[in-house]
Design a protein around this nucleic acid. Structure first.
Lengths: 243, 243
DNA sequence: CGGGCTCTTGATAGGAATCAAGCGGAGTGG
DNA sequence: CCACTCCGCTTGATTCCTATCAAGAGCCCG
């Protein structure tokens, strides 16, 4: 109906600008060094399959190597809350440390690969490596801060601002992995994105359409082009949105 | 205007049913043992004063000994999000581990006392106590799970359900400290509570009034009596609320 | 080529925010 | 000790944003 600003043909939207770090552990954990002390199992996961599910016995952490995963919290009565999207270098399972069973689900959004870090061995290995252990602790603290930052966003931003903040977040993570932060493919459905942002998928869809209308982005299904990154950052930061 | 079901005169609403544990560390950390290795400083904090503020150099964790504190996340543009209320036995400052400066504010809601645990010394001490260190790590994981649980609540519950869930949470914590879970005093203003629940204070006020109208609770300013705890738990769990 | 799923868009409804006013407790100063 | 003021709480009226309900288009897959 509206004149859709079609996306230019994409030659290589995900082309890395620099060779992606072989194993860029989220918070500075040197996986190669850890592997000298702990056997690391590589596990391929197909789209839709889970790395682990809530209730399964906790036995390992996982490092995302390829693909994108979502973690989601479940309540007894069927409510679900996506708590995050995990990409290459992200460590998952940390929230379940200290429990007998995993506390949430971790599901692949596309075919991918995780490296399994058996937990008791990792813990033992870290005791011999004080600086690694300190960094691991710092990584957990970082995880808490990330969650808190999203609580701030969810608690204080409107739907459109949340969507903007989400795009800024994803863009930043793409950049950190050596990909373009101006042109990327969302790996999750609108429904997952909406759930994460505490919105409904229709609302997310409308927000994206509107951001496109005002010329901030170009969106075609899951493909996003950041046309006016500066303005999106401004919106994500709580500045009054332009109509 | 409406016939207020007045609260009976309160003799000792906060009377502990059993002697409160001397230092019930949040997640099983044995503070007494830690004190053998680390100098612990006791700091009294007056209502409204901060334990620390975002940006101040990070140098210690704090264990709440007396009083109630709120932690809040701040954004550059002035938005604020209360991320939690911390009571006796709760450890605060954990989210700032690995940073040069604290990442959030921790403010006393009433006169209280915290025990200061200088961080590098604590870290060093933990290296000599593997089981303590493991429990400390588990405590951080627990913190992550608490945050995630609130993300679930905020993302999936209506205003009244959130308020119910909040009351259930507070009641549970009171019980854990040896106090009554049927009759307690909220230590925070409606505004703080609302901010934490991602609502406005008028909405919280209305929700409490409504819960009173339907006979679930009796509320008088900050004093809460749980009259029908079972139903409140049900509402907090996402069951359709009765009108 | 059909079926199902995802995404988009429109119309409408509903819940929380906002705007506004009044009450009452706590603290202050006369 | 009491009057006064400030601040927190409650309640009402109204608006606005997002959810809900509904329909249709596009893409992927068998």
């Amino acid at each position: 109906m509206n004149a859709m600003p079609m996306l230019a043909a994409v030659s290589a939207p995900l082309q890395s600008r620099r060779p992606p770090a072989l194993v860029a552990a989220n918070a500075g954990i040197d996986i190669e060094r850890l592997r000298e002390h702990v056997p690391v199992l590589r596990r391929k996961i197909k789209a839709g399959q889970s790395v682990y599910r809530a209730g399964q016995p906790f036995h390992a952490l996982y490092l995302v190597h390829v693909g994108c995963f979502k973690t989601s919290e479940l309540s007894g009565d069927g409510r679900e809350q996506v708590t995050g999207f995990r990409m290459r270098g992200d460590l998952i399972g940390v929230e379940s440390i200290g429990l007998a069973a995993y506390a949430c689900d971790a599901v692949a959004l596309e075919d991918g690969e995780v490296w399994e870090l058996p937990y008791p061995p990792v813990l033992r290995a870290l005791f011999g490596l004080p600086d690694m252990h300190a960094r691991f602790t710092a990584a957990m603290a970082e995880e808490i801060r990330r969650d808190r930052a999203w609580m701030l966003a969810l608690g204080t931003l409107s739907a459109e601002q949340r969507v903007s903040a989400f795009l800024v977040d994803i863009a930043g993570r793409c950049a950190a992995l050596g990909f373009s932060d101006r042109h990327f493919i969302l790996r999750m459905s609108r429904a997952d994105m909406a759930n994460y942002l505490a919105l409904k998928h229709e609302t997310v869809s409308r927000a994206l359409s509107h951001l496109q209308e005002i010329g901030c982005i170009a969106v075609l299904r899951r493909e996003i082009k950041m046309l006016d990154a500066e303005r999106i950052v401004a919106m994500a930061s709580g500045c009054a949105s332009v109509h």
